[in-house]
Amino acid sequence: MSNNNEKKEFIEDPRYKQCNREVKYAAILGIVNMVWWFGWGYGLGSQPVEEYTYIMGLPTWFFMSSVVGAVLFTVATFFMIDKLFKHMPLDDMTEEEAKKYLEEVENNA
């Protein structure tokens, strides 16, 4: 519907690139978390109860999906924040500040 040539030129906020990246990491983490939970929970939990195995007294399906899953994805969250998330100013930027920020990001890369 739109015609890009007619659009007024403006500088896109340079911080958004990293913001968009972080959203993708979180979405991937969430989906992996769900798959882990589902796989262990229903993979082993659907067996007849007589065939259940136990770890620390808990049925293995529950131990792996809920206990190990909770700890594992907490650790994964820490990893995501420390390795993949980046600090940035949140306040409104002027064009000069935006250019300076962009330079800093490129220098750090």
Partner: peptide
């Protein structure tokens, strides 16, 4: 208890998805 664990991502998901962009836009 297994069902309750579906709330687990709320701790990281909500803040990461709205994330910095929501905070930047709100200030703008």
């Amino acid at each position: 208890v297994f069902l309750a664990m579906t709330q687990m991502p709320t701790g990281y998901f909500t803040l990461s998805v709205l994330g910095k962009k929501f905070a930047i836009v709100a200030r703008k």
